[in-house]
Amino acid sequence: MTLGIDVQGLTVRFGDVTAVDDLSVRLAGGKIYGLLGRNGSGKTTLMSAIAAFLQADRGRVLVDGEQPYENPAVTEQICLVRDSGDLADQDSARAALKRAAKFRPNWDAEFAERLIELFRVPTRRGVARMSRGQRSALGVTVGLASRAPVTMLDESYFGMDAPSRYAFYDVLLEDYIEHPRTIVISTHLIEEVTRLFEEVVIIDQGRLVAHDETEALRMRGAAVTGAVSAVEAFTDGMTVLAERRLGGTKSVTVFGAMGAEQRARASEFDVELEPVALQDLFVHLTKEAPR
């Protein structure tokens, strides 16, 4: 079961701070989305509005065509796991899993046990006494084992060490293929998780900056690699996002799509063109995006 998300002119304010500003975006069901934004860009607020944790000041959110706010039939199909894991500190991991099973109609207890073992979560220890990495592992266990048609992970795995994070990426992709659903992942570890994303949503200061398929977004720029003099001549006059040099070889990341003419020139200059790294593009768009 997959559910689509339709955000229409959403505005959310906290006092005199506008966290989400007239944002509209439509996410088709059954895909893995990357939600990118700088600190304070409105990512958590957007996800919280979708999960009906808060009410919009203006606009609306629809999940499968219905508003989730104060709508239990919809909210039980949505699982948002934030960095804290949203787990009561007095609970042990085992108690937290039991509570999740009670409120999640698609809960898979066998899968939860497999994840607990994979991530080495101490099930009898109180959540308050766990390390940040253990709490993160417990949070993503709840998120994945809930098998909610809309699953949102808001930096929830950030505290895990590198081996655990990579194990998480692999198991998430495997389970998504077996049990398709709509998954939204908010992250700052962009290069680590780019391979998971089918589409990417970038927001800045509460507004939509970009929404496209991952590869289409990466084609908005290029990484140009070759001899130093050839690369510098080819990229002269282009918008440079980043550059690296090793001996006589140089790699320059530029912003701007490469059409047939530019590719023919690249061949003449004997330089290689590859899609831009998503992280470099993100940095550029959130620095230069119109306010």
Rank of each mutant, 00 (worst) to 15 (best):
L80G: 04
R195V: 04
V61D: 03
T194W: 07
Q262S: 11
L144N: 09
L217V: 02
I78W: 04
D57I: 07
L87G: 03
A266N: 12
V283N: 12
R60M: 00
S156E: 05
A100V: 11
G139N: 08
V17Y: 08
D280T: 13
T123C: 00
I203A: 09
E70S: 09
D89Y: 09
F269Y: 14
H211N: 04
E288H: 12
F119M: 02
R114M: 01
L246W: 13
I190N: 15
D280Y: 14
H211R: 11
A257E: 04
T249I: 15
D175Q: 10
D212V: 02
V184H: 11
C79K: 13
P275I: 11
D57W: 06
P72E: 00
M130N: 00
P163Y: 03
F53Y: 14
P163A: 04
A264L: 15
R26T: 13
R218D: 00
D236R: 13
R220P: 01
I183M: 14
G85Q: 00
T11R: 12
Y169G: 03
A264V: 14
G37H: 09
M258H: 04
N106C: 12
A260K: 11
A230E: 09
L87Y: 01
R124H: 01
V7M: 09
L173W: 07
S251T: 14
G206P: 07
A277T: 11
V17E: 02
R135F: 01
A19I: 05
Y176H: 15
D22Q: 15
V193K: 13
T225A: 15
Q279P: 10
R220V: 01
F197R: 06
A145C: 11
V200M: 00
G126I: 04
K287G: 10
E213Y: 08
A137E: 03
D108A: 08
L27Q: 14
V140R: 03
M238A: 14
V121S: 03
T151K: 13
E261A: 14
R60H: 00
Y176I: 09
V74E: 00
T225N: 08
G15V: 06
F158N: 07
A112W: 07
T44P: 12
I203D: 10
T18A: 08
Q55Y: 10
T286S: 07
E174K: 12
G59D: 01
V127L: 01
S131H: 00
S186V: 10
I177H: 14
G42S: 12
I202T: 08
A73Y: 00
F234S: 07
R165W: 03
G159V: 02
Y169M: 10
V276H: 03
V171I: 13
V200Y: 01
G37A: 09
L217Y: 03
R99N: 11
I202L: 12
R38H: 15
